[in-house]
Design a protein around this nucleic acid. Sequence first.
DNA 1: TTTCGTTATTCCCTGTTGTATATTACGCCT
DNA 2: AGGCGTAATATACAACAGGGAATAACGAAA
Lengths: 135, 135
Amino acid sequence: MHKKNTLLFKRKVSPPGFCGRIWIDGEKGTFLGYGRIVLLERIREYGSITKAAKSMEMSYRHAWELVDSMNRQAQKPLVGASTGGKGGGGAHVTEDGEKAIKLFWQFYADFQDFLRQEKQNLMFSNKNQQRRRKV
Amino acid sequence: MHKKNTLLFKRKVSPPGFCGRIWIDGEKGTFLGYGRIVLLERIREYGSITKAAKSMEMSYRHAWELVDSMNRQAQKPLVGASTGGKGGGGAHVTEDGEKAIKLFWQFYADFQDFLRQEKQNLMFSNKNQQRRRKV
DNA sequence: TTTCGTTATTCCCTGTTGTATATTACGCCT
DNA sequence: AGGCGTAATATACAACAGGGAATAACGAAA
């Protein structure tokens, strides 16, 4: 990676500890991830891929590739876009896009809970017997 | 990354689905991760960083850097090494190294369980109401 | 018709990461 | 003393992901 100052990495700030990343795979690699979901939310907010990308300090090229990747892997596009017209065009998040956002944030919240639990269970129990977490 | 055919990536083979990576951070970035732990186990198996690296199709340089990173971030080294002598030298996993291996695999197993649960709970529930997982 | 801002697409360049290679230090062994 | 296989270290090289800039297409509005 070239630039570590991207939004995706700014939130990992309190080592040491139990860390992780989650995503949802599609047929061709990553389908939904943290950055992609934030991008969807910014597109919803600004109605424009260009503005969404700028707000995340992300190149338009990269943002467009992410949107394209999501749209190609989803059954129905998560982002609709049009060129020309009033304001030059724009983009919006479809209903399926909104579902994707909800789904991922649920996954994400569950994962944060999981990390908290692991910290509780494992951080000070690496003596000899490791208490098994009840699942 | 240059070569995706490394051990670290060969295991992600069944999209689509809920995926993730976990690791344990230290003061200077990653402290324990999947590849590092497998490397520790290979060092224990072969008694040599060189042979361990070869067995993972990893360059010695990279393997050594991982070992160095772990040793510098741990309170006591996870790997002991010596040059010269019978067989030219060698490396071994210390007691703290063994603890690290156990700790990470526990974390890893818990994470696999978590992913299975999420798949159960979220994969077919993205209609409108998302059932909250009991934590 | 011209203007405008966006989507969509292409090309070049750079920083990063890891490989490959070479070299030195080391200490037990024959 | 010399050989051996390893750790440790430095240098050069290759691949690649992503940034930046440039360009064309587009369609409503002035």
